[in-house]
Design a protein around this nucleic acid. Sequence first.
DNA 1: AACGACGTTCCCGACTAGGGAACACGGAGG
DNA 2: CCTCCGTGTTCCCTAGTCGGGAACGTCGTT
Lengths: 263, 263
Amino acid sequence: MEKSDHVRAADTSLRILQLIAFSDVPLGVTQIAAQVGTAKGAVHKHLRTLGDHGMVAQDPVTSLYSLGPKIWLMAQKAPPGRTLAELALPLMRVTRDELGLAVVLSVPTARSAYVLATLSSNQPIEIGVRPGGELSLHSSAQGKVFLAFGDPSLPESLAPPLERFTPKTQTDVGSVRAELEQIRRQGYATAPEESLLGINALAAPIFDSRGQIAGAIGLIGSVQHLGSQPSDTQLDGLLRLTAAISRRLDEGSGGVSKPSPAP
Amino acid sequence: MEKSDHVRAADTSLRILQLIAFSDVPLGVTQIAAQVGTAKGAVHKHLRTLGDHGMVAQDPVTSLYSLGPKIWLMAQKAPPGRTLAELALPLMRVTRDELGLAVVLSVPTARSAYVLATLSSNQPIEIGVRPGGELSLHSSAQGKVFLAFGDPSLPESLAPPLERFTPKTQTDVGSVRAELEQIRRQGYATAPEESLLGINALAAPIFDSRGQIAGAIGLIGSVQHLGSQPSDTQLDGLLRLTAAISRRLDEGSGGVSKPSPAP
DNA sequence: AACGACGTTCCCGACTAGGGAACACGGAGG
DNA sequence: CCTCCGTGTTCCCTAGTCGGGAACGTCGTT
């Protein structure tokens, strides 16, 4: 029971939706059916359902499917990423140009660091992650930042077995928890070769106006450019970036504490 | 056969998602179950599935659900509304202030005019529609604009019975089709009391750089402020607004060939 | 004209989704 | 401190639905 209690039909509908969303061109029923591994007929029914809800739209002439208007409408009501990514991206670009490393913005999830936006390094060999990807909590720098500065219940949910990605991945819950204390003290986390051999990451938290963690910035690079002991330049660039984003988040949100209205 | 071929489970999942998306505060399982009319247990399974896909997120402390990060990510890849609404809204605001009527932006769908954004009138009695609402093709001014200027297959899909909303609703397919010719000539459509008694609407199309219809602007008001023969001021304000939006759409999109459709 | 590829429709059986009730938990109130 | 709601979560069984597969209609191509 790796994935215990699902709603199978809803799952396939969402997989279809994701496929359409992340495709650059409109898709046909046959391609979709092949990619999600379901019969054409079933996929067609799902597309009909998604269309009834305005999540996808079918071009009346080519009969190909693409995203519908409701997606955009929903995003208007989704504050988590909206303001954050829009604020952060221009600042991230500056830091990328200064340091020459890939810069990644992610938000915390119950089981991962969810990648909202990435800027590739300007090095000849590109290193990066795709938006929409998920970084594990225990083996990525951004994940460990969320464990250290995020909700206290998050580290508690860490339970063996921790997946091993490389020989250097920390798979012992105890040692991961021990590292969190150090991360809190120094204000940043690293994960040398813990997700992928040859690759290191350096990450620091972003806080909102209430002092809650809102996301994290990660710098990604090969061990050649980003050592397990980050250089002062890199560390300074990262911390100035996260501080700047946190500051802008505060300004935007009225400043003081934010009471939630009664129903 | 009112709604022929559904995927029931996917449908409830999407209803749940919509409920969460359009709610201003995070929702609990019980409220959601009550609103969608499904057992709590089932709703919980759906929420789990939606969460696995990043569409919703559960607050670890309050255990309430709100929209997840993937929604925002998808909207980045959903050009239909994004550019259109962002371009149109500031211009719409000007026209609203000039005319004092509610201004509505919608995009065409296979069966309706889908409302992307609205600006309420500044009159003491507010008249308007909610974003996400759908206006019928045959009884709304914006719907008739889509029938007249949109894809030629759209009017063909008009089949009896046409739903009757008021005594003045056109329920005869033939007479609706006949009206389209006139709408094409004059470049705008009205729908006096066809959707709701006492309310009139005046709508005109927005075209993209390829000359295809991209949306429509509708002015909504009571029959007192918006007669079945619109005043020159109102007509001029509307047509200047749609022309301005169409022009900006062209500029943004390379703006090469611009075949101007029949005025 | 024959072909192939596509989206769509149809049908039937396996299995899943949903109702309902029970469970774990936490805060409010006695 | 105990009780009592209220919550979110888990469990179980069965009616109903989802998915596979094949057939259909319709394009554009050969």
